[in-house]
Computed example of a mutant assay.
Amino acid sequence: MHCSTDAVHAPTVAGIAGNRNLGAWSIALSGGYEDDVDLGYAFTFTGAGGRDLKGTKQNPKNLRTAPQSKDQSWETNPLNAALKKSSETKKPVRVIRGYKLHSKYAPAEGYRYDGLYTVEKAWMEKGLNKGGFMVCKYALKRMAGQPALPERDLEAEAEARKGQKQTGSSKDIESEDDASEYPETEDMEPEEEDAITTPPEPAHSQMEAEEDE
C-alpha cells in the first residue's frame, strides 16, 4: 500500500503495472514463482496468469498460491504483454523487492524500491511447475549509475535464528522458509484490461525525467 501511495508501484496486489500498448512501469519481486532467479543486478522474472485464483467449492476463497493449471500467455494477459512491450522499447522499469523473495538482495522486512532496470529479453518456455505448463519469462538488467544494492548475510541470519532458538528467545527473525507460508502476490492481475491504469502522475513523470538523464 505504501508503494502505491508513493506512486512507485501502483497496484496493491498485482506484481506487474502497465499496459500492452505502452509497456510496464514497475514490477514487484515477491517470490511467487519457482522459475525466478535473482542475481541482484540482473534477474529473471516470470509473468502473470496460469493459475485458477477463484478457489473451489471446498475452499472458495481467493487462492493466491494456487498451483499452475494452464499456460501463461502474452495474447490474453495484458500484464505479460506490457513487459514484452518493454523488452522492445527498452524503456526503464521500476523494480521493487519484497521480503518474501528468496534472495540475499531481498529486504528483511517490507518492500524496497531498488531502482530502474531494462527488460533485455522476453521469451516463453516450459516452467518448473509440476504440470509443465508454459510461462512467460523476462530477463532484466539494472541500469548503470545507481546506488549499490544492499545485500544480506543469510548465513549469519541463520546462525542468529539458531542461537535465538537455543536460548529460548520469543523474538525470532523470519526465515525464508517461514516466508513461504504467506500468500504470494505475483499472480493477482486485474480480470479486465480496462482495470489496468496508468500509475499516478508523479511517478510517471519521475521515470520520464530519469530516462532523459
Rank of each mutant, 00 (worst) to 15 (best):
R97M: 13
G98L: 01
G98E: 08
Y99E: 02
Y99M: 08
Y99K: 01
Y99I: 02
K100N: 03
K100M: 09
K100C: 04
L101I: 00
H102T: 06
S103I: 14
K104L: 10
Y105H: 10
Y105R: 03
Y105P: 03
Y105L: 04
Y105M: 03
A106Y: 08
A106W: 11
A106K: 06
P107R: 11
P107H: 13
P107F: 04
A108V: 01
A108Q: 01
E109N: 00
E109Y: 00
G110S: 00
Y111F: 07
R112F: 02
D114Y: 14
G115C: 03
G115F: 03
G115I: 02
L116V: 07
L116Y: 15
T118W: 10
T118E: 12
T118M: 11
T118V: 14
V119I: 12
E120R: 11
K121H: 13
A122S: 15
W123E: 12
W123C: 14
W123P: 06
M124S: 08
E125N: 04
K126I: 07
K126R: 10
L128P: 01
N129G: 07
N129E: 12
N129F: 09
N129V: 06
N129K: 09
K130W: 03
K130I: 03
K130Y: 06
K130G: 02
K130R: 10
G131W: 09
G131A: 13
G132E: 08
G132W: 06
F133K: 01
F133C: 02
F133L: 02
M134Q: 05
M134W: 02
C136N: 08
K137D: 05
K137L: 07
K137N: 09
Y138F: 15
Y138C: 08
Y138H: 11
Y138E: 13
L140Y: 10
K141R: 13
K141M: 07
K141G: 07
R142I: 01
M143L: 11
M143R: 04
A144C: 07
G145W: 13
G145F: 15
Q146W: 00
P147I: 09
P147E: 04
P147N: 01
P147Q: 05
P147M: 04
P147Y: 06
P147K: 05
A148D: 15
A148Q: 14
A148S: 15
P150I: 10
E151W: 00
E151K: 04
E151S: 01
R152G: 05
R152D: 06
D153L: 07
D153E: 02
L154Q: 09
E155T: 08
E155C: 01
E155D: 12
E155N: 05
A156R: 09
E157A: 08
E157D: 14
A158N: 09
A158W: 10
A158Q: 14
E159N: 05
A160N: 11
A160M: 12
A160Q: 13
A160I: 10
R161L: 15
R161H: 03
R161S: 05
G163N: 04
Q164T: 10
K165I: 12
Q166I: 14
T167Y: 13
T167P: 04
G168I: 14
G168F: 15
K171M: 15
K171N: 12
D172A: 13
D172H: 12
I173Q: 09
I173G: 13
I173N: 10
E174A: 11
S175E: 07
S175C: 10
S175N: 02
